[in-house]
């Protein structure tokens, strides 16, 4: 079994375990390469029919090409798509100009929390990876959040032999991370092998491409000539630039990502 097969099987096992243990599941689909790979794996795990809804937290700042791609794929793959927006914050004019931390927290984290409260989801699949950003590396595969959405990273229960912690108090929800062991390069090699369609913003245009997709005002394309998946893979093998270099919220202030994440940011 090669490396990608091993990762694929690990993720499928996690999906099936979660589906068996939790009634009210949903999956966050940010439209990016990771959560689209996650969606592909969910289709594999459940023989083509994803048994839970997909949630896109729409901040109103997403690139039109992301929205077009989202709607096209949702239709083609026949998924149950929920688009969630923190309408109140959008109406009151939340924007990065008034502070990126507040904007991310209101439009993404609170947008997600409102949806969880409304729909009562008990488990949320997320496409985060250990290698992508500091605080994500310490995650467990099944990671509980309390009713205030907080993550107690200092005292996490052990997780061994694929025996996940799946019984939680009623006021908690659990984040489930089937891609934790994957690297950015694994994702692209898998996308190539499986021929998973990705949003074209990842491909170089006029010497620039997006390494990571986010909101238009806070996400910048990086200099790159990689216009095909093959070229992206070659680029990743030699680059020294971090994946999230173009994501402004990571660099706004020290530890901002970690603060956002301890409050419940994916």
């Amino acid at each position: 079994m090669d490396h990608l097969d091993a990762l694929e099987n690990e993720s499928i096992y996690i999906f099936r375990e979660a589906q068996r243990k939790f009634k009210d599941l949903a999956m966050l689909w940010s439209i990016g390469k990771d959560s689209t790979t996650l969606l592909w794996l969910a289709r594999k795990a459940f023989f083509g029919k994803v048994p839970f809804p997909l949630v896109h937290i729409d901040t109103g700042f997403k690139h039109p090409m992301m929205i077009e791609y989202r709607d096209r794929m949702a239709k083609e793959w026949e998924v149950d798509l929920i688009v969630a927006r923190n309408e109140e914050a959008i109406r009151s004019g939340a924007s990065p100009e008034k502070g990126r931390f507040a904007c991310c927290n209101a439009l993404k984290t609170q947008g997600l929390q409102q949806l969880l409260d409304r729909r009562g989801f008990k488990g949320i699949f997320l496409g985060i990876r250990r290698d992508e950003e500091g605080s994500r590396a310490k995650e467990r595969i099944f990671s509980p959040r309390d009713k205030n959405f907080e993550w107690n990273y200092k005292d996490q229960p052990p997780e061994l032999w694929d025996q996940f912690n799946t019984s939680f108090r009623p006021d908690t929800h659990v984040r489930i991370h089937p891609l934790l062991s994957w690297t950015e390069l694994d994702i692209w090699e898998y996308i190539r092998r499986e021929e998973i369609p990705v949003c074209s913003l990842y491909l170089s245009k006029d010497g620039k491409r997006y390494r990571s997709l986010g909101c238009v005002p806070c996400n910048f394309p990086l200099a790159s000539g990689a216009s095909t998946v093959d070229e992206i893979i070659e680029e990743l093998k030699v680059t020294k630039t971090p994946e999230r270099a173009g994501r402004a919220q990571d660099h706004e202030a020290a530890y901002m990502m970690q603060k956002l994440r301890s409050l419940g940011y994916p």
Partner: peptide, 9 residues
């Protein structure tokens, strides 16, 4: 905080 440069792992 919990920042750790784990790309380095």
């Amino acid at each position: 905080n919990i920042t750790i440069d784990t790309a380095q792992t």
